[in-house]
Structure formats: structure tokens, C-alpha cells
Design a binder for these strands. Structure first.
Length: 596
RNA sequence: GGGGGCGUAGCUCAAUUGGUUAGAGUACCAGACUGUCGAUCUGGGUGUUGCGGGUUCGAGUCCCGUCGUCCCCGCCA
């Protein structure tokens, strides 16, 4: 037996017991005579002690240990002298007096201290196995495991069956860029890694699975962000014979379960709902952070016949004037205002109009002089303007004004300290538009082409497609999109009609989606589902800033695996096997894995 | 594809207007020390200032390029 206990286990009750422990040397405190070693494993830290009077041989060996050496020790659990107890340690009431030690493995000096948080991330990623050894990262991995387990348990209790779907599948040019895998046996043909198991899960509904879920790995070859990795994991769910309400109910319960298991207590159910239209109007985004106010207010009516030319022109052109009250930011430095103006311009605004309300109630602003008394009075009333407030205006086409103010609202909320850190505000955003226009002005699915139109808008599909709502929904937490889904189309004729509206020629639709429309034609039940990004869910539950902290081996912003050195060139033999020829010399040198 | 930040000892950082031998803490190495738990004390600098080029009597510092990493926009059905 390598060990009788773990390093987090021993307590006063174990005093007098002979034990064997294994772990990593956390710190060595050598007093010339007695030597203390903090022994660490996943479960905790135990102080072991070597005294030459107990065993000269063991003492000699213990003196040669260094940080991160892997050792096995054997000795007796002792009470610490009363004044020497360490309250910071769970095992702090005891220590292990050792007369045997074996060095199981030595360690080089670690490239960075394992007890330090301020280490550059590329170094952590290069030596991820050491980074993951840190108690904090172990806790993250454990949390992730517990959440995943809770999800499985919950869905199992709700009659869901976990089904695995292929990783090697077919490219669907719509949506994100695919990762491609060349086929050896079909020269010139490629598999694609799934962006999501979308079509498979719908086919499982046709197959009568009724309730499916999967903790599914997804791949998207797009640029990375703090909350986006090229491969990520979804809690993928699909249900038959349901309406949106059934999805909300199941996922409400799931969110409550995850909050509970993560130690955040009970949340009030049902989770609030907000239409896409309201979200855009009130928060300027489809993923509103509902932890604070500062809601956007439309002022077009207040300024309907204003003398202020900038607003006037926008309103005449069919645009809107909107604003929000950044309460308490009236004294914000001009430097910050300049920065925000720059950001507003980046968001498409011509400029950023504002009023800084002084403590005495007077308005300091370059534009107020153009406002009539009535306009000023109505402004004050509508925005509930008080001393010390900051009012930020946007005048433009509605989406531009909303988008800009939506971003500014977040900055203002943060600057004002108006966002409570320990609050968890879930919200459903519902009734997304079915379509949007792409850069070339063509109709495109906002969610995906299998999303059911809202039944009330069915007659506008051809006449006014952009106004058609979808039976689509997102679940949002504190301004972060955790997931989204929809009720799907189960009528093959409607599905074909949507493909047609999207400008996909019949033949191409058959080629790309024939398997799906054909399946729908064989008695597909009404169905719908949702997918939640589990990386983001876990990130939110630990209060993290990036999903890299909850992924064991994440990639850098350039999609590199610094530890493995992936991606990397392959040799000509491998290329030949899959019938590939490079049109460009191999770019860059091979990333050397860590030496030594 | 675009904007911005960072890059100096193993690690985290400092280095005046461009100035002479690039420092600090920590880690590491050696020695001392029998109750520490961020051990302490003494001694030791271990450096291609990311890389390449340029300007200059002189570059960590200025200029150009390049690489890496992070944040954001675009992109992410």
C-alpha cells in the first residue's frame, strides 16, 4: 500500500496512528536539527516532521528534498504542542513524526512558483501540468466535475438519455468556419468537426428518443475571446412533443440545480423573461446584464420638434434619440468622457452627447443650450435626473443608438460600481428575429435554418421576412450568453420553404440538408431544444473572467496549444495518405515542446 | 483583417532627458540554526533587456520590421 491516508485527511482523532503519506513537497523548513516539510496532494497539506533523534537515515534523506519532489513518508500522527497548532490548515492540529522517507521522484526547480497567482498565462499554459497542480486550479477542475455530474443527474432524473454523436461529420458551410479532416479512403473529400450536434439531435427526435442530452464537444474555427475557445463543451438538449414552456421549465430547474451545487444557494423560479425587442430597447443588447439599472430610455418624442440640429436631422431621417442616466457619474473626468466618446464612435455614433449634473443641480453640457425649457423639463422628468448624475445620449438609427448605449451602459455601470459582484441575474431572452441580413443583403438565419418561425408571423414569411419572430430563445446570466435554442421545424414543406427564403437552390438544399428534410418526412414529432456552454456556466459559477480557467488544456488566442505545440506540420507521408499537397511552404518552424 | 496593452534574472517587477558596471523582492545555490508553518541569519547574480535591422560617440530607453501573449472590434448559423 503506497499510502494509508491523503494529505488532507488526518485530524486529532488519528493521533497515535501509524500512517503512510504520499505527495509533493510544498515547502521545506530546515532548522538544522528538526526539519518540517509541508506535504501536498489534491486533498490538502499535512506537516510532516523529521528529527535526527527519530531516525538519522530518514533525516539525512529528508534534507535533500526540494520543492515538488514526490515523496512517501511513514510515521506516527502526533498532537502538535498546543501553541503550535496552525488554524490556517485543516490538518493544523496534528503533524506526522516520520522515521521513514522515500523519494519517489525528483523535480527540477519549477519554472514558476506554484503558490503565486501573478504568473504570465503563456508560461502557465506551457507548463499546464504544473499550473493544474495549484490548489486553485484543482478546485476549478473539481467544480467543473461537480457541475457536470449535477447536470447528468438532473437530466437523468428528467428522463433524458445521453447519446453520443459523431465527431467526424459533414461540413455545413453556413454558420462558423468548420475544422476539416481529410479522408484517406475518399480522395479529395473531407469530414468536418461538428459546430454542434444540431442535426443529429433532431434526427434522434425523429428516431423517437423523446428526450436526448449530451455533454458534447463542439468545434468552431473562429477567432478567440476570453469566453470563446475553438473547441468547447455544450450541454446539448433536445425534447419531443414540447413547447417553449417545457424547455424553460427544464432549464430553469437545471440552472437552479447548478447554482445550488456551486454553493450560490437558491434562485427564484421561474427565471425572468424578456423579449428580444425589449432587451434591445431597454439594454441595447440581446444579452442584458440585469444586475443593475441604467436602462435606456427613448426620447424621440421629447425632441419631436427640437431646435437642436443634430437630433432634428436624425429624427427626420427616421432615427431615434435615446439616453440613459448613469447615476452618480456626474463628476466623471473629461478624460474618461473622451474615451467613451471614442468607443461610441467605434460603435457607429457620430459623437457622444452628455449632460454632467453638478452637485448643485446645474447641468454642464455642450448641448443643453439648444434645448427648450419644455425639453429640459421633460428630460428631467423622464430620466429622473438628480444632482451628480451623468446623462449619455445617442441619436442615430435605432440599432446603432441601441448598440452604442448598450456598450456604454456596461462601462458606466462598472465605473459607478453599480454592478453587485455576488448577484446572479438569469434572464430568458425570447422571440428573436428569424432572419437577419448578411453583408451582401441576403437573408440569413439568425439562429439556424431549422428554427421554427413564430406561428403568429407565419403569413409574413415572404412579405416581410425581417419582421418574423422565431421560436428561439437565449438564456443569459449577468450579461453572458450561457446558451440558446429553439423550437425546430418538423414540417418538411416548411423547412423547404425556409431554405428557399434563404436563397438556397433546391438542388443545393437537397445536397446539404436532404438527410434532414427526408427524415422530417417520415413522421418527425414536434420538437425543440437548447444548448448551454458548460465552460461559460462553470466560469460564471467560480466568478472567473475567462473560460481558460475552467478548461484543463486551453488554447491561446492564436489557437495554439503551447504545451503540446499544436498545431504542427506533418510529414509528407501523412499528407500523401490523405491526398493533400501544400500550396505554401510550411509556415513557421515547428513549436518545440518544452525541453528537459 | 483592424485597434490597444505587455515582453528586462527561473518568477514578479524597477531602471531619471538616450549616459558609464542593468537593480529589487522572491526563487535558486552554499553555509549556520532543534518548533517552524511566507521560518530565520550569513554569503553568492545565475542576464542574448523576445528576435532582426537602423539612428547615435553611446540604445533596455528612440525609429522600422518581426515574433509571442493578453484585451477588444470584425467574425462566432
Amino acid at each position: 500500500m503506497m499510502r494509508t491516508h491523503t494529505c488532507g485527511e488526518l485530524r486529532k482523532e488519528n493521533i497515535g496512528v501509524r500512517v503512510r503519506l504520499c505527495g509533493w513537497v510544498d515547502t521545506v523548513r530546515d532548522h538544522g536539527g528538526v526539519i518540517f516539510i509541508d506535504l501536498r496532494d489534491r486533498y490538502g497539506l499535512t506537516q510532516v516532521i523529521f528529527d535526527p533523534r527519530d531516525s538519522q537515515e530518514a533525516w539525512d534523506l529528508s534534507q535533500t528534498t526540494r520543492g515538488e519532489y514526490v515523496i512517501q513518508v511513514e510515521g506516527d500522527v502526533e498532537a502538535r504542542p498546543p501553541e503550535m497548532e496552525n488554524e490556517k490548515l485543516a490538518t493544523g492540529a496534528i503533524e506526522v513524526r516520520c522515521d521513514r522517507i522515500q523519494i519517489l521522484n525528483k523535480s527540477l526547480t519549477p519554472p514558476f512558483p506554484l503558490d503565486d497567482k501573478g504568473v504570465s498565462e503563456d508560461l502557465r499554459l506551457t507548463y499546464r501540468y504544473l499550473d493544474l497542480r495549484r490548489p486553485q486550479m484543482q478546485e476549478h477542475m473539481r467544480k467543473r466535475h461537480e457541475i457536470t455530474q449535477a447536470v447528468r443527474r438532473y437530466l437523468d432524473q428528467h428522463q433524458f438519455t445521453e447519446v453520443e454523436t459523431p465527431i467526424l461529420t459533414k461540413s455545413t458551410p453556413e454558420g462558423a468556419r468548420d475544422y476539416l479532416v481529410p479522408s484517406r479512403v475518399a480522395p479529395g473529400a473531407f469530414y468536418a468537426l461538428p459546430q454542434a450536434p444540431q442535426q443529429y439531435k433532431q434526427l434522434l427526435m425523429v428516431a423517437g428518443s423523446d428526450r436526448y442530452y449530451q455533454i458534447a464537444r463542439c468545434f468552431r474555427d473562429e477567432d478567440l475571446r476570453a469566453d470563446r475557445q475553438p473547441e468547447f463543451t455544450q450541454i446539448d438538449v433536445e425534447m419531443s412533443f414540447i413547447t417553449r414552456e417545457d424547455i424553460y421549465e427544464v432549464i430553469d430547474g437545471l440552472c437552479a440545480e447548478v447554482m445550488q451545487i456551486s454553493g450560490h444557494g437558491n434562485i427564484t423560479l421561474p427565471i425572468a423573461r424578456l423579449s428580444y425587442e425589449d432587451a434591445m430597447n431597454r439594454f441595447g443588447t440581446d444579452r442584458p446584464d440585469m444586475r443593475f439599472g441604467m436602462e435606456l430610455v427613448e426620447l424621440s418624442e421629447v425632441f419631436r420638434d427640437t431646435g437642436f440640429n443634430v437630433f432634428k436631422k436624425v429624427l427626420e431621417a427616421g432615427g431615434v434619440v435615446k439616453a440613459f442616466n448613469a447615476r452618480g457619474l456626474g463628476a466623471v473626468p473629461i478624460r474618461v468622457m473622451d474615451e467613451w466618446t471614442g468607443l461610441a464612435q467605434e460603435a457607429g455614433l457620430g459623437g457622444l452627447a452628455y449632460i454632467r449634473v453638478q452637485e448643485d443641480g446645474t447641468w454642464k453640457s455642450p448641448i443643453v443650450k439648444f434645448f427648450s425649457d419644455r425639453e429640459q423639463a421633460e428630460l428631467k422628468e423622464t430620466l429622473d435626473i438628480r444632482p451628480g448624475d451623468l446623462i449619455l445620449f445617442a441619436a442615430d438609427k435605432r440599432p446603432v443608438a441601441d448598440g452604442a448605449l448598450g456598450r456604454l451602459r456596461l462601462l458606466a455601470g462598472r465605473a459607478a460600481g453599480a454592478i453587485p459582484e455576488n448577484k446572479y441575474s438569469f434572464v430568458w431572452v425570447t422571440d428573436f428575429p428569424l432572419f437577419m441580413r448578411d453583408e451582401e443583403g441576403r437573408l440569413q438565419s439568425m439562429h439556424h435554418p431549422f428554427t421554427s418561425p413564430h406561428p403568429e408571423d407565419m403569413d409574413k414569411l415572404e412579405s416581410d421576412p425581417l419582421s418574423v419572430r422565431a421560436l428561439a430563445y437565449d438564456i443569459v446570466l449577468n450579461g453572458v450568453e450561457l446558451g440558446g435554442g429553439s423550437i425546430r421545424i418538423h414540417d418538411p414543406d416548411l423547412q423547404k420553404r425556409i431554405f428557399h427564403l434563404l436563397g438556397i437552390p433546391k438542388e443545393e438544399a437537397e445536397d446539404r440538408f436532404g438527410h434532414l428534410t427526408r427524415a422530417l418526412a417520415y413522421g418527425a414529432p414536434p420538437h425543440g431544444g437548447i444548448a448551454l456552454g458548460i465552460d461559460r456556466v462553470v466560469m460564471m459559477m467560480i466568478g472567473g473572467r475567462t473560460i481558460r480557467d475552467v478548461i484543463a488544456f486551453p488554447k491561446t488566442q492564436k489557437a495554439m496549444d503551447l504545451m503540446m505545440g499544436a498545431p504542427a506540420p506533418v510529414d509528407d507521408r501523412q499528407l500523401k495518405d490523405v491526398h493533400l499537397k501544400l500550396t505554401r511552404p510550411r509556415g513557421g518552424e515547428e513549436k518545440k515542446p518544452v525541453d528537459e
